[in-house]
Structures are given as C-alpha cells and as structure tokens.
Amino acid sequence: MTILPVASSKPADDGAVARATWALPVAGLLVGLAGALVYKIASRCGLTANLAALLALATTALITGALHEDGLADTADGLGGGRTRARKLEIMRDSRIGTYGTCALILSFGLRWSALATIANPWAVTLALCAAHAGARAGVPAFMSLVPPARPDGLSASAGSPPGRSVAIAFALGTLVLALALGPGKALAGLILLSLAGLLLARLAIRQIGGQTGDILGAFEQLGEILILLVAAALLGGH
C-alpha cells in the first residue's frame, strides 16, 4: 500500500496478498503518522494550518504513490463517463484522466485539506490522520470479500478474496484506532458512515460493472478518509 521498500526473500504466492490484508490498517497508521509528522514540523516552522495541511496531504499521497487517488479518479471517470460495462472498464484502465476524475480529486483533496485546517491543532491532526488512514483501510478486506471482482484479471482479481480471519483482524484494528483517536461515540459514527459509503459504492459498482476492481477499492479508501476526517473535524475542530 506504499512505495516504501520492504525486503522480501521470495515472491508472494497465490493468495498471499489477500491473507496479508489484515495489515492494511497498520500500513494506514504508518501513512497517517508520516503526514502528522510533516504537519507538526510545518507548524513548528511557523506555517499556517492551511499550508501545513497541504504539506501533510502531499506527504501521504507521496508515500502511497497516490495509489488510492488514482483509483478514485479512474472510478469517477469510468462509472461517470462510460455507457456500457465494457466501455466503463476500458475507461478505468486508461491512464488518462477525464473531467469526472479531475472533479473527484479536487473534491477529495479539498475536503480533506479543509478538515485538517479546521482541526488545526497538531496533536488533534495526528489523531485525525491516524484514524482516517487506519479506519479507511480497515474496511477494504471486507469489501474485497463481499463484492466479487468485476473481471478475471487485474489487481483485485489477482489479489484474491481475503479469508475471514484477515477481514476480522483488519476490522478490529481499524476500530481500535478509531476509538482511541476519536472516542467511542465518534468512532461509531465514522464506522456507520464508512459502512454506508461502502454499501452505496458496492451497489453502484455491481450494477454498472459487475463488481469491484482495484480502482473501486481505491475509491472506497478515499471515501473513508474523507468521511472520517469530516467526523474528526466536527469533534476536534478548534481544540
């Protein structure tokens, strides 16, 4: 889930990626901490909350190789621009970005940036970023398990379906981080919003392209980040 180099003694075998999805919230926590560190340094250097928030977002996008942002843009272009299932899938594989994808990225960065700038306090921003990145990834294994792949090839199909143990561990880890960062009440609100967003996206993906793809998973993660940061802004803003 990041571009950070990780030593491996052997290639991943069939199903290894699916089994490892339990660790997605852990990867998200590390990404969130990296963004929070940059925010803290920027604040210490006298930069405004607006500029610090932009630098934090740039850091998280850099560490992940903008993987999830790319998925969001491709999903918006494909589901919004294609008329047939085949055409939608073709658009989603096209490396070029269209109007729908551009608008989706502007909204994603704009909402996340505004939420972080509203929170402002570096410690509160750290809690919000950790909650958003861990929580948004916690539901990805369940989404992969419940929604079938839209095509027999591609990133999602090759990864396979996560086993129940990986789904449960990821959900538990994400819930734990959310509860510790935001408190039980706001964590529950975040989980409910994330679940509703997942259900709506799953229904849309199944109706339009027959299931999920790697791009759909990226879009789901982005929706999760946005919703959790908005919940955090409502809770932590001005504190």
Rank of each mutant, 00 (worst) to 15 (best):
A136E: 05
I169Y: 05
P152Q: 14
T175S: 15
A36E: 09
A86F: 01
L180S: 10
I41D: 04
P162D: 15
A234S: 11
T21P: 02
L230Q: 13
A20G: 11
W123E: 14
L173C: 11
G78L: 11
A157F: 09
W22E: 04
R112L: 01
H68E: 08
G210V: 10
R151T: 10
G78C: 11
Y100Q: 06
P122F: 06
A73F: 03
R87W: 00
T126P: 01
A179R: 00
P5I: 01
L105V: 07
S195Y: 10
G185P: 00
G35N: 01
T84H: 06
G81K: 11
A150E: 06
L72V: 12
V17G: 00
N50V: 06
G237F: 05
E69W: 12
V167S: 10
V6R: 03
G135Y: 09
P149Y: 11
L51V: 15
C130L: 12
L111N: 03
A181I: 14
A117N: 02
A27R: 01
L54P: 00
L182I: 04
S161V: 15
L191I: 15
L217E: 15
H239P: 05
I216D: 05
Q212H: 13
A52G: 12
D215M: 10
P152T: 15
A36S: 14
S8C: 00
D70V: 02
P148D: 13
G238Y: 13
A172T: 11
A234H: 05
M1G: 07
H68D: 06
A189G: 14
T102V: 12
L105G: 10
D153S: 13
A120Y: 02
T118C: 07
D14C: 00
T21S: 08
A115Y: 05
C130Y: 06
R137T: 13
S158R: 15
G185D: 03
G139R: 03
P148I: 13
